[in-house]
Design a protein around this nucleic acid. Structure first.
Lengths: 191, 191
DNA sequence: TTCACATAGAACCGATCGGTTCGATGTGAC
DNA sequence: GTCACATCGAACCGATCGGTTCTATGTGAA
């Protein structure tokens, strides 16, 4: 005798619950590391509900990654802005924010780049590209306002340091990778 | 009526064939992107043969990654050495070698780091860590011979640039990411 | 009160997974 | 010629996969 517990019955809320929980589970276990069935039982939702909201696992993955990219981009941008107007301070703040993220016990690298590394083709690749483009935009803007002669190149070098630091924090456990990278980044910004 | 074609019958050669082919296939499709059955038919080997040589898919993966790490490490080290004794020249050679790799049509990022990103636990993580450690050793040595005041820190910054450049070449299609990173690396080496 | 609807829970589907086993066949050393 | 052995090809295993469909049930608005 099936018993519907009647929790929320608010579709938007249900969708958000699935999205949030799936974000954490995919991040912790990998896209192929958790199946739809386990996903549903863990979240506390039926498969029919999940499929009515997202249609397919791939679509859920895409929704998860896009919302994650939005959130992370907003987070890093606000970290920069909260450091004031000075581009050097902003750049330092970006790397300090990264260091804080890397030190979190649940840190496992960039969820979006990890996903793109798992699925060589398909939506995650495109999301990853846009994600990096947005980050490059932020860093290039800082470089430009710092008055470097070639903001485009310096922006790319800063993005290289950001990406590399996250890689080392993940694969070598270097929780201070961003701090080390920050010194290099500031040196580059000073021409 | 099964017909054994009787190719090599040399176990060592068979093992090497499997290892080489699996290296390419796992790199191109991802660890979970190709199953043992398809792997075998593509290579032209029976499942029994593969399992007698490697025991399990995980073991094959580990053997693939370790041999790959050895090969790549040797390759980068020889690229540095063939540039002469000057550490600046050697560092430039390292990044030029990376740029050549990134430009290859089959380039899909670092096979070892991709694998580690797919399997959050297990052998690939350990292989990735050792892989980065070996690379750090090379870069730190270059920094030391260049006479920087803090070779350990500079070595880590150089590794950050190397890793970041490979990430950008993969996820943004920046085939010149290593060239851009090279300028930053040389600047760091000049203190 | 009525009714459209969001949901739970479970059964079910075909496909694929990693892995095992077996018989047939050819190889190469003795 | 004999024989241990490496190999193939295929059948087979239980488990899991993503996805569909069904019934039953509680919700909330009309």
């Amino acid at each position: 005798m099936p018993v519907a517990k009647g929790a929320s019955l608010d579709p938007a809320h249900t969708r958000a619950t699935i999205l949030d929980a799936a974000t954490d589970l995919f991040y912790a276990r990998g896209l192929d590391g958790i199946g739809v069935a386990e996903l549903c039982t863990t979240i506390g939702v039926s498969k029919e509900t999940l499929y009515r909201h997202f249609g397919a696992k791939d679509k859920l993955v895409q929704a998860v990654l896009e919302s994650r990219s939005d959130k992370v981009t907003r987070w890093l941008r606000s970290a920069a802005e909260s450091a004031g107007d000075d581009p050097f301070d902003q750049l330092a703040a970006v790397f300090d924010a990264l260091a804080g993220w890397h030190a979190e016990p649940t840190f496992r690298g960039c969820a979006i780049l990890n996903a793109a590394a798992q699925q060589h083709e398909g939506p995650p690749r495109a999301v990853a590209r846009r994600h990096l483009d947005r980050r490059l935009e932020l860093l290039t803007d800082i470089a430009r306002r710092a008055g470097v002669t070639d903001p485009t190149t310096v922006g790319r070098q800063l993005l290289t340091l950001v990406s590399g630091a996250t890689t080392l924090a993940d694969h070598r456990g270097d929780t201070d990778a961003a701090v080390v990278a920050k010194q290099a980044a500031l040196a580059l910004l000073r021409h």
